[in-house]
């Protein structure tokens, strides 16, 4: 991929030879990557330790003796942890599901139907991304309380059922669908919904996947909104709940249990990232370079 671009093709005449240069680059990157991996390694190591003595040992003991998964069970059973996980899964899937529907519908309009004021509306969509959620949180709290939605799934899903970023992402994909294909569908008498289902969506699968992984990640990781909008233990998400668990007897100084809980909380987002890395990084860099 990089063989023809970037600094890879320069011959470094005055300094090191190209081979030596690569060895140097390898060593530096490997060193930095090791430092970056240490926190993860420490988290996993701690989560597998059988007792507090090994957890608190100083100097630190890296290898659990013997490694045990018992902490994961303890974390799962502590302070409604399983409930937090299910809540997070539900609001992430439901939220992103609605976002995908609304995002595709809006992206279709913004890419395929002309009308006066369309550019202005699109600008309004884009501007949403620039308004920090903390700026609107107090009025939203008041509105949700008037609607009697506080401490319910509605409060965690509905305000996030539309997506400016997703609309922007999909619009770009829909615009790149060849006009001929759409025209052919129009001639065959396809309705807008049919064009979407049979032309746009199938041709935009990679973008939809990018859309899914990024938005899922953001919904899962959100801490601020559920902190304000939920109050009962049964409505907490895992981003909040982990911190609650730490304050219970099961947490406290029991860092092995807390770390097991942390691993569980991160599992879905890390797995999604590892499996769909390409889409993730593509989405991140595309949105980055487009300046949004």
């Amino acid at each position: 991929m990089t063989s023809e671009t970037g600094t890879g093709t320069i011959r470094y005449r005055r300094s090191l030879g190209p081979q030596l240069q690569k060895v140097f680059a390898f060593l530096v990157v490997a060193a930095i990557a090791t430092v970056f991996a240490i926190p993860f390694a420490w988290m996993i190591s701690t989560s597998l330790k059988p007792n507090l003595r090994q957890v608190l040992a100083y100097p630190p003991q890296w290898i659990p003796d013997p490694p045990t998964f018992a902490n994961y069970l303890r974390a799962w059973q502590a302070a409604r942890f399983s409930r937090y996980m299910l809540n997070s899964l539900w609001i992430s899937f439901a939220g992103v599901g609605l976002q995908m529907i609304n995002g595709s519908l809006c992206a279709y309009v913004f890419s395929r139907i002309q009308f006066r004021g369309r550019e202005f509306l699109f600008l309004l969509f884009l501007a949403v991304m620039m308004i920090p959620s903390q700026v609107t949180v107090i009025p939203n709290y008041i509105m949700l309380s008037r609607l009697d939605w506080l401490d319910s799934f509605k409060a965690l899903i509905i305000p996030f059922s539309a997506t400016a970023f997703g609309t922007f992402l999909l619009r770009t994909a829909f615009l790149s669908v060849p006009d001929d294909l759409v025209d052919a569908a129009v001639i065959d008498g396809a309705s807008h919904l049919q064009i979407m289902r049979h032309v746009m969506i199938p041709l935009s699968k990679p973008t939809l996947l990018t859309f899914f992984v990024l938005n899922f990640n953001w919904r899962w990781n959100d801490y601020f909104w559920p902190l304000i909008m939920t109050s009962s233990d049964k409505m907490r998400t895992v981003a909040l709940g982990l911190n609650i668990m730490r304050q219970t007897t099961e947490g406290g100084t029991n860092w092995h249990v807390v770390m097991a809980g942390t691993v569980l909380a991160l599992l879905p987002v890390l797995a999604l990232f590892l499996f769909f890395q390409r889409y993730f990084i593509e989405g991140i860099s595309r949105s980055g370079l487009k300046g949004v």
Partner: peptide
């Protein structure tokens, strides 16, 4: 992958680590 992965983690969870 290794260097990017911290970016996808849940801040409030990784904060405990």
């Amino acid at each position: 992958t290794v260097i990017f992965s911290p970016y996808v983690t849940t801040t409030s969870a990784i904060a405990l680590l």
